[in-house]
Structures are given as C-alpha cells and as structure tokens.
Design a protein around this nucleic acid. Structure first.
Length: 516
RNA sequence: GGCCGUGUACCCAAGUGGCUUAAGGGGACGGAUUGCAAAUCCGUUAUCCGCGGGUUCGAAUCCCGCCGCGGCCUCCA
C-alpha cells in the first residue's frame, strides 16, 4: 500500500485506482524537445518513474503516459499570450550553429529548417538518455507509441476541445482574435496553487503585458489558440491558422489517452502554477466532473553543489556531461533519486561517487547471491527479512533513503567477501536458499532500478585510451617485479592524475575510471 | 507583498509525539590486508536536530514568531 503526498489536498493519502479492478492511470508532464534535457529535468522524470515502479511493486497495473512537447512555444514572459520568440526557431538557430562549429555528434544529420526534424532530433536524444537512466515509460513506448504522445499528433482533438469550451461559455474569442479560457467561469481556480483569481487580480503588476490584458476578461485568462500566420508550426482552425496554447496539450492528451478522470498527474514544482492549475480548469470544464487528476505529484528542484542550476555557471549538466566525467548511468539515476522528491535535492560530484560505490557493493551482493542461489541457508535470509522494512519505507510517501537503508542493512548479513557461504547448521536446512534472497533483491531493484543499468563508465575519462593504460600497467608491473617501487608509484600517480584508479588484486591489476 | 515547500553531524540524507541518550551512505580517524597505496573487511565519529517562545508527563517531530534556502505569482522539471 502506497501512501503519497497529494499537492492538491496537501496531505498524505493512500493511492488506489479510481476503477478498483482496473489499472492506475498516470500522466507525467514530459520534456520539451527544443533542447537536450538536463539532469534537473531528469530528476523530475526519474521520480515519476520511481512512483510508477513503486505502484507496480505494490501490485498495481499502471498505464503511464508521458508526453513530449514538440509544438514551438514562446520564450518571453509575455508569451503566454503569444509574444516573444518561437522556441523552435531558437532551437533551429542553435542547431545551425552547432553544425557550423562541428559540435554536433558524428553522423547526425538534421535539417535545421524543418521544425519537425528538430523536434525528432531532440526527441531521439531524450529517448536515448531516458533509456540509459531506466525510465520504464520509454521502454513501454517501444510497444505502445501512444504512451509517449506528441501534441502535433493531437491538433484536431485540441480544436474540438477548445470548440466545446467555447460552446459551453468557458472560453471566448477576444478582440485580438485569440481564444482565451474564461477563468471566472471556473470557481475552483486556484485550488491547487493557492493563486485564486482575487490574488492574481490584486497581484497583477509588471509581469503581464498591458496590451493583452486589455482584451481579456480577467488577467488570469490564458490562451487556448493563437492565430498566427508567422508561427513556425501552424494549423488550420475555426479561429484562423495558428497554434494551440501550452496548457491545452496536456489536458487533451491525458483525457484522450487515459480518460476523463485520471488517478495521478505529475510534473516539476514549477508546473504547479500556471500549467497544472490551468489544466485542471480546462479539463474539469470540458468533462463537467468535479475532479481531473485525483492525485497530484510534484518534484522539487535540483540544486547543483548547493547553488541553483545556472547556464552561465555551466551547471546545467546533461547526462552526457556526467558520463564524460566517468559517471555511470546507474550512479546518476541513484544520485538524482535518493533525495526525497519533496525536498530540494543537492547534486554533488561527491554524491555521485557515493552513489557509484553503493551500487558497486550491491552488484557484488547480487553476484554473490547468484553464485550461491541453490545453496540452502537458515531462513528467512537477510534480504528477504529486509523486504518488510523496504516496503514500509517506500510505501511511506516514497522514502527512498529509508528503503536504501533497509537494503544496506541486509548487506551486512551476507558474507559477500567469502568464497563459500557458511554451511547451514544440521537440522536447520530447508528453510530457504540464497536464491530466495536474490529474488528479494530483485524486487527491491525493480523499484530502485539501478542494478540492470549500465554501471561501468562508458566514456573515456582524462583522454587516455585503453592501450595507453595497459602499456602503463605493464611498465608498472615490470618496475614492481624489479622492486623499483619509486618508478611503479610514479606510474600509478600518473594514472591517478589522468582519472584512472588501479586495483592490485590476486589475479593481477585492474583499473577503473574515476568520477569527477 | 501573496501562495507553496524546506532547514538534522565535515558532506549527502532518514526520522510522521514515548521503541531515538537521532537510521543509512560518504568522508575523516584507528585496526586487518598491502612493498607503499587503492579496493575490501572490522571499529570510532551529533547528549543533539536554523533561532526564540509555547502546548504536553514527554517534541527533531504539534503550535506561534523570527531568520535562511528553494519554487511559483503567466518561459521553465
């Protein structure tokens, strides 16, 4: 049983499907595909993935949908009403520059004049990264493409959605030709964010474009359709050639794919207002129901080394940046996931190393259990016994740190350094095998999702290739054989400086790349 | 200014009124191991939970005030 904090009620509530026998429906506000997703974006998607895996851990079937926003939206503050620059155009310029400077990956061909090609390019990059980090919904989408819908495939549905809102007097065409949602027609506006119509009215200062404010009935009214013959992506509509508003996409796709009332809706904390507030308004006016998503799940922001993510400070890391520094996808996943989703997380390179070490230890445990899976032991074994604490922690509003502690506690009970497991005392055999513990570990990992990810560094660190490293190691072995330890240590120091850590074992020397 | 979240050791981070004289991981320190290291294993490492009041037999946990950090208040995960 999962108890989960609900941003709408601001309390922790049990999660159960609306339709008791049916699956849970879960919609996640996914990435925009004008740029590569950074690790802050991924923290939010990973927490949605963790939630989904936890629901499955507790025996629910989950239909998880995560969109990829490919309609070019606007860059400026006033842009909710249609101003600013088209983000897809910005992306095009950026791509053209990357092409010119040769910073585009080898073999990539993108027609920067085609917005759909740009969207495809960044969508592919996203899918790649998301798979490396183990987002289940992305694997689902291989079989069911509709699990990762793109708004450009839902334009007719959006138009029908908007038309119905107009027909029911929840939307209107203003003097500027733009279709706006009439927030005053929805008394519950502000329930999610606390930004009620009164507070918005009184707080209207500076940030709203005076000209568009004049044509709207209320400053909080937001755009549903904007006629614009200049916009890069545009479609015919009853209100002229143009493009849909930002919020209408998610409402339309969620209702189309999951039904008029869904169980869980997730996103980053910045989505609470205006995006999710507006989604609720539109959707409930469309369906006439008193609920759209029953449970709202919001992940707080990620900080980098104690500070805000910043482009100018170069801390808007993308997965590739971390891999290039020797991190493994598994460690990145764990580092981004192990801070509770309702706290600001602090990403550090030290933390990344911590995560890496923890996973390496789990991998050794897994290998040991697999080796001795058929061996009987006095049961229940350590991992089996920890499953209760693990389940209680993760079921308690996704207490990942507590769940990890349960797993680490089990680790102490397994002699992973021993060649052979301790023999079961006479007469006590038959209560289980180490394979049962392996199965329990599998259940835990189905939630954490790190053991089956790539856990070896995948990119060269420090610019030294394998042949060079091997050559150094041979030289060092020779020096050691001659008892010339000064020379051997000099080689070791050189490798460490290049980001290579060496390990002298019984079977010779092995090496790994270090993180950071 | 309004709304929302948050503040625990050197760092990351659990703790949801008594089982807590505060989990887990990292680091540091000591020991085993090692030519010396690294890795690994064992042990030690907060009488105290941003600050000040209050409620209670009892508070890190509840309430009030203050301070700090983060988000939103029509770009944003």
């Amino acid at each position: 049983m999962l108890n989960l904090h609900n941003s709408l009620s601001r309390t922790v509530e049990p999660v159960a499907p609306l339709n008791h026998s049916g699956p849970l429906t879960f919609y996640t506000c996914g990435p925009t595909v004008y740029d590569v997703a950074h690790i802050g974006n991924f923290r939010s998607f990973l927490n949605a993935d963790l939630l989904r895996r936890t629901l499955e851990f507790f025996g629910h079937e989950v239909i998880h949908v995560m969109n990829m926003t490919d309609v070019g939206h606007m860059t400026e503050d006033s842009s909710a009403d249609g101003g600013g620059q088209d983000k897809m155009e910005v992306a095009a310029v950026r791509l053209k520059e990357a092409k010119k400077s040769g910073s585009l990956p080898e073999g990539v061909e993108v027609d920067a004049n085609d917005p759909y090609a740009i969207a495809d390019y960044f969508a592919d990059r996203f899918l790649q990264d998301a798979k490396a980090l183990g987002l289940r919904v992305v694997f689902d989408a291989d079989e069911f493409p509709e699990r990762m819908p793109r708004p450009t495939n839902f334009i007719p549905q959006m138009i029908a959605f908007i038309q119905r809102l107009i027909d029911d007097n929840h939307a209107y065409v203003a003097a500027d030709g733009v279709v706006y949602f009439d927030t005053q027609s929805f008394p519950d506006y502000g329930q999610l964010s606390g930004n009620t119509l009164d507070t918005i009215r009184s707080g209207e200062g500076g940030r709203v474009d005076a000209q568009t404010q004049q044509v709207k009935k209320h400053p909080a009214d937001f755009m549903l359709w904007k006629p614009d013959s200049q916009h890069l992506m545009r479609w015919d509509s009853p209100w002229g050639e143009g493009y849909p508003g930002w919020h209408i996409e998610c409402s339309t796709m969620a209702i189309e794919l999951l039904g008029e009332e869904i169980d869980i809706h997730s996103g980053g904390e910045d989505n609470i207002f205006p995006h999710h507030e507006c989604e609720i308004a539109q959707s409930r006016c469309f369906t006439g129901r008193d609920s759209f998503a029953r449970h709202w799940f919001h992940t707080r922001f990620l900080m980098i080394e104690g500070a805000k993510m910043s482009k100018s400070a170069g801390t808007c890391y993308v997965l590739e940046d971390l891999l290039a520094r020797g991190a493994t996808p598994a460690a990145v996943r764990l580092e981004l996931l192990r801070t509770h989703y309702r706290s600001n997380a602090n990403f550090t390179f030290q933390g990344l190393k911590d995560a890496q070490r923890m996973i390496e230890r789990w991998k050794r445990m897994e290998a040991w259990l697999a080796r001795h899976a058929d061996v009987e032991r006095v049961g229940p074994g350590p991992v089996e016994s920890a499953l209760g604490a693990f389940s209680e922690a993760i079921g308690n509003d996704l207490n990942v740190a507590g769940a990890i502690a349960a797993l680490n506690g089990a680790l102490a009970g397994i002699p992973i350094e021993a060649e052979a497991p301790p023999p079961a005392p006479d007469g006590s055999a038959g209560s289980g095998t180490w394979g049962d513990d392996l199965a329990a570990l599998g259940k835990m990992n189905a939630v954490l999702g790190v053991l089956d990810l790539e856990h070896e560094p995948v990119r060269a660190a420090g610019g030294m290739d394998e042949a060079a490293i091997e050559a150094k190691l041979v030289a060092r072995a020779e020096a050691k054989a001659n008892r010339d330890f000064a020379a051997a240590d000099a080689i070791r120091d050189e490798l460490i400086a290049a980001g290579i850590v060496i390990k002298d074992g019984a079977d010779g020397t092995t090496w790994t790349r270090s993180v950071g």
